[in-house]
Each structure stands twice: as C-alpha cells, then as structure tokens.
Amino acid sequence: MSKEPDAGLSRRRVLAVGAASLATALPAARSEAQPAAAGNASDSPGGLVHAVSFNVNGSEQRLDLDARTTLLDALREHMRLTGTKKGCDHGQCGACTVIVDGRRINSCLSLAVMHEGARITTIEGLGTPDKLHPMQAAFIEHDAYQCGYCTPGQICSAVAVLDEIRAGVPSHASESLLDRPQANNTEMRERMSGNICRCGAYSNIAEAMAEVAGRDV
C-alpha cells in the first residue's frame, strides 16, 4: 500500500530529461497545412479573420477578429473598453468577469467569435462616474476595493450574484438544495469566490453587496 512510484529522477535522468526537454520546451508548431477556411473566415496575416457581431453595453458592434482573440481582448484591445481586466488570462482570478446574455462569465476563457449575436454588459455598461450603478455606489461607500484592479470584475459578479440568488440558483453554501437561497453573508461569499482580491477587500465587498441586496431583494 505504500510503495512509492520511482521515488525520483536520478541525477543522470534529470540531465537527460533536461536535455530532452530542450527540444520539446517550446513545442513545435510549424506551419502545417491548414484546413480550408471555413464559414466567413478569410486569410490574413497572423491567422484567420472572422467577422463577429454582438451588442456591447447597448451598442451593436461588428468586429473582424483573428479567431484566436478572446472576448476579453476583443473588449480591451479592439474596442478599447479597458474596464474589464486581465488578471490571469486563465480563468483563475475573475478580473475579466462580464455579463453575457444575463450570465456572468470569464471573458478570458471565451473566444470572441463564439459570441455572435450575444448581449454583453461590461463594467462600463453598468454605470459611469457621473451615473453610478447602485452596486458601484455601494462599493465606494463601503470601500470595497483598494487597488481597483479586480474591482470591475467583482462588481459585475456581484450584480449577477444577486440575480442568481433571486432566480433561485443554489450554491455550495446553500443549506438545502430544495429551499430558495437567501442573500446572506455565507451565500454571497461562496458565490463571489471566483473573484480574487489580493488587496483583501472581501469583508467590505460582502457588506456592499448586503446593502444592495437589502435594498432590492
């Protein structure tokens, strides 16, 4: 029950493996024959460009994008809506959270071309400095942010979380799967856990959310 599998690479093997890894370190991706361009794609330098149309914060957008472009980069680099943040680019932090067709998602782990016809709401679409969304105002009042970098994602998530609770979507923190979830501290903290704040504003974010939840639940 306790035999360790090959307790370690021998020194020699480390070296050999090291050498082997050199060849494979940066995997070859030599230009292979590409399948014929499909759909509305066309060849262009740097990959295949696709047209995609979606609605962002109420305005219709039509973009011609390298298919590799994430929704996050489409927003930040192509539409210059830089309120949505890139914290990890791998779905590990939540800074890129936006609301697509009423649901919050990590925009870094979605290709822009996969969102044809979608309705996308970013932090800029929730409110502006002169006309704050109630959640934005609550974040300011409760000092629910510090460096500000995770903040747009936190706010988009917070808005969507209150919607999810209203819609009766259960969470890991729900005591019962059959009762309607409540907008209490435990529920909100569990549901917000996909939004990391390294400054550690969590306690204040929960209070900002509680205030908004109290107002409209």
Partner: peptide, 12 residues
C-alpha cells in the same frame, strides 16, 4: 470615500 473611487468602480 476615496476620491478615485468613481473611476475604479466604473473601469475608467
């Protein structure tokens, strides 16, 4: 309240 708050919370 932070004077930069309305910028940080609106992504601006």
């Amino acid at each position: 309240d932070r004077i930069d708050g309305k910028f940080k919370t609106t992504g601006t």
